[in-house]
Write a protein that binds this DNA or RNA. Structure first.
Lengths: 201, 201
DNA sequence: CGAGTGATTGACTTAGATCAATGACCGTGG
DNA sequence: CCACGGTCATTGATCTAAGTCAATCACTCG
């Protein structure tokens, strides 16, 4: 049972769907918060632009993921949200969530658990970005994104998007993948990558 | 009013203090969670070790900060916690927090707000680490850590600790600071750094 | 069919990592 | 009270991996 199902059970049908074209912006940093979003389909990127004009990818929310969880406590958004593909999102209005929070401990717990997950996720990203080597970052991503078999990874989007998520230029990502294939560490076939030398953890 | 005061009000005296020597470990990744800690004095570092044996600093909790907030929902810790200086921490036992969660919506809300803050903090770290240039990371840190005057920064610990927090080698941090002084961007005097060219945001 | 974008590869540059050495400082124990 | 071991702060020399600029090909979507 996902958090979103919980939310759905409780908040019911007082929420609206919105369709986003690829590249369309859901909200901007500084604009007033509306509430919590849930990505129904597609994927949405949270980014922040630094003074040099470069975009940092803070988070990628895919189908089923919550989006802007922390924003129900803040008056404005702290980053930009942009659809990476054509996407559908559901909005759970802020006021509704806050009122549920007061009277419904089950809901409160579920919401907090969701935040806790996001926090652990963000910390894992911090760990990934702390690694200087492109190869290490890629490995880290691959290991965390294997299917149940623990060996194959289905790439969620384009390699270019992945490179941004990993804080690498796309050129380096391409080249490093080639080298990993050459070294027999992975095999590629279209959208899927297979880990050949199982990682010892 | 800080979250910790909230916690204190509610959880009262059912919590224990622990003193840590500099470098002492509070908990290890994989060990069973005890509850939420609050840093009373000193500072504690959350780290994770990657397969290459390198430590990534996920978070630094200073006096007044909560620690291991997400762990009350998980059976084991997901990173290591080590004191950076002699420190005192307070433990709020897991069971106690969870039971309060059920019956006390004010507490639940405060706890969730705390998690939301941590999440935003972690995302800000992600942004910092997404910047490739040492200078940009340092600038980012400085701007976020100015005193009320918005111009001076009091370094919280050693430069070496800061370098780890910024995902840089200490040599690069030293050198870059020297260059920033040469360029007239900052001035240093002991533990404090002054911003000379106010950042336009 | 053509524009736009992703994927890929090449050549070159550069900033940060690495290895190494030195001086300052601090707390500890004799 | 001072010598000593440890760590921080700093600087130099060198190496390397990632960034940058640039070109090409494949593919998809109107």
């Amino acid at each position: 049972m996902t958090i979103e199902e919980d939310l759905g059970d409780i908040v019911g049908n007082a929420c609206t769907l919105r369709t986003l074209q690829s590249g369309e912006t859901l909200f901007y940093r500084g604009s007033p918060t509306e509430g919590l979003f849930e990505v129904v389909s597609g994927s949405v990127r949270l980014t922040r632009v630094d003074p040099n004009g470069k975009e940092a990818v803070l988070h990628v929310a895919r189908a089923g993921d919550p989006l802007a969880e922390a924003s129900i406590f803040t008056p404005v958004y702290h980053c930009d949200a942009t659809a990476m593909t054509k996407s559908v999102v559901r909005l759970y209005p802020k006021g509704l969530l806050l009122s549920h929070f007061e009277g419904n401990p089950t809901f409160a717990k579920a919401y907090t658990l969701m935040l806790a997950r996001q926090l652990m996720d963000a910390r894992t990203r911090v760990q990934c970005l702390s690694m200087h080597s492109a190869r290490d970052r890629i490995r880290h991503f691959l290991v965390l994104n294997t299917c149940k078999d623990g060996l194959t990874v289905e790439l969620p989007g384009t390699l270019k998007d992945l490179s941004a998520e990993l804080g690498l230029t796309h050129e380096v990502l391409y080249r490093t993948l080639v080298r990993m294939v050459e070294d027999g560490e992975i095999a590629r076939s279209g959208r899927t990558i297979m880990l050949l030398s199982p990682v010892i953890t």
